[in-house]
C-alpha cells in the first residue's frame, strides 16, 4: 500500500498496529497515524449507523485512577458500538483505596482475562508499568504529564475533517504546557503529520528544556497565534493561578486568555479547540468558546468516539493476528 497523506481511495479498513498496546504517540509511524485517522473518519461518517461488531465477545475494562467523565464515557460508547462488553472500574470504589499497589491491581485484573484495558492514571508511566504485568492490550487514556494519545488523535481527526489536511497548517497550543499530556501527544502527532506546532505559554508553565524538543515557543499570545490556522487552548488548573506558577486568574486572562481581541492576530478563518473541561473567563472567553463559526470544541467530543472505535478495533485486530501467528 502506498503511503498517502490524504484520504485513501478505498474505504478504510481496520488497522493493524505495530505494537500490542497503544501507550503513546511518540514513536508511532506516520503510516499508522494516517490509517487510524482514515478508519476513524469512516466511523465518524457512520456514527448513527450500525457498524460491524468487530469487538463482539470482547471484554473491555475502563480502569480510571483519575476522574474523567468525558474520556471514560467516550471509550464506553465506542466499545459498545463495536459490540464489546464494558466494565468500568473507578478508583473510588476499588481496592486501590484499601492500599493495593498498582501491580497487584493489574495482576488481579489479569486473572479475569480482559481483552483490552483502558487506563487513566495521574502518574506518568503508569500504563507502561501495567503493560509489563498484564496480558490484555493496554490503551493509555492519559498518564500524568506524559501522553494522551486518543486525545491527540481526535484533535487531528477534527482538524483533518475541517481543513481537509494537516500538513502545512500552523497550530498554536496555548497554556499550561508543563503539566499537559495533551500538548506532548499533539506535538508528536500533529508535528509528525507535517503541521507547524507552536507552544504559547507563560515562562513558568513551560518545561525548562522545551527548546530541546524542537518546538517554537512564545510568551506573547498575539505573537504566538499570529497567522495560525488553529488555536488550541489548554485547561489551566485553578491551583496554578494562586501565585505559585502565575500570579492570578486576573493576570492570566489578561495576558494568556483567548478573547476576540487576541484572536484577531490569528489567520482570518482560524478555528478554536480545547480538550475540555474549559475554565470560562480564565483561559477562554465564553464568547469565543460558544462561537459556532469558530469553535470546534463540540466537534472534538464527537470525533472522540470515532477515534476510540478505531483504536479499540485496531488493538483487537492486532491481538487476533498475534494469536493466530
Amino acid at each position: 500500500m502506498a503511503m498517502t497523506t490524504s484520504q485513501t481511495d478505498t474505504p478504510a479498513s481496520a488497522v493493524t498496529l505495530p505494537s500490542h498496546h497503544l501507550l503513546g504517540i511518540e514513536g508511532m509511524d506516520v503510516l499508522t497515524m494516517h490509517r487510524l485517522l482514515d478508519r476513524a473518519s469512516y466511523f465518524a461518517d457512520n456514527l448513527t449507523n450500525d457498524v460491524e461488531q468487530t469487538l463482539k465477545g470482547q471484554t473491555i475494562v475502563n480502569l480510571f485512577f483519575e476522574n474523567s467523565t468525558r474520556t471514560r464515557v467516550s471509550f464506553e460508547v465506542a466499545a459498545k458500538k463495536l459490540g464489546a462488553s464494558v466494565l468500568n472500574i473507578s478508583v473510588a470504589g476499588s481496592s486501590v483505596k484499601k492500599g493495593e499497589t498498582l501491580v497487584d491491581t493489574a495482576t488481579t485484573l489479569n486473572a479475569m482475562h480482559p481483552d483490552i484495558l483502558v487506563v487513566r492514571h495521574h502518574a506518568s508511566g503508569a500504563p507502561q508499568l501495567l503493560a509489563q504485568h498484564i496480558d490484555a492490550a493496554i490503551i493509555n487514556a492519559g498518564d500524568g504529564r506524559h501522553e494522551h494519545p486518543t486525545q491527540a488523535l481526535l484533535d487531528a481527526l477534527t482538524i483533518k475533517r475541517r481543513f481537509g489536511k494537516i500538513e502545512g497548517l500552523r497550530i498554536a497550543i496555548c497554556g499550561d504546557i508543563t503539566n499537559s499530556r495533551v500538548a506532548r501527544s499533539n506535538l508528536y502527532l500533529l508535528g509528525g503529520l507535517g503541521a507547524e506546532v507552536r507552544f504559547v505559554s507563560p515562562s513558568t508553565l513551560l518545561p525548562p528544556a522545551i527548546g530541546d524538543m524542537g518546538v517554537a515557543v512564545y510568551h506573547d499570545m498575539a505573537e504566538g497565534i499570529k497567522d495560525c490556522d488553529i488555536v488550541m487552548m489548554l485547561r489551566l488548573q485553578t491551583e496554578r493561578m494562586e501565585g505559585r506558577e502565575t500570579p492570578s486568574q486576573h493576570e492570566y486572562f489578561n495576558l494568556f486568555g483567548l478573547d476576540s481581541d487576541k484572536l484577531e492576530a490569528a489567520a482570518p478563518k482560524a478555528m478554536i479547540m480545547h480538550p475540555g473541561p474549559m475554565n470560562r473567563g480564565v483561559e477562554i472567553d465564553s464568547e469565543i468558546a460558544d462561537d459556532h463559526e469558530r469553535s470546534l470544541i463540540h466537534k472534538q467530543v464527537e470525533m472522540g468516539v470515532a477515534i476510540r472505535m478505531a483504536c479499540l478495533e485496531a488493538l483487537a485486530v492486532t491481538a487476533a493476528q498475534k494469536r493466530s501467528a
Partner: peptide
C-alpha cells in the same frame, strides 16, 4: 515581587 510583600505568592508582574 510578591502579593502584599509577603514572599509567598507572585504579584501581577505582567499587568
Amino acid at each position: 515581587l510578591t502579593q502584599g510583600q509577603k514572599g509567598h505568592h507572585m504579584a501581577e508582574l505582567g499587568l
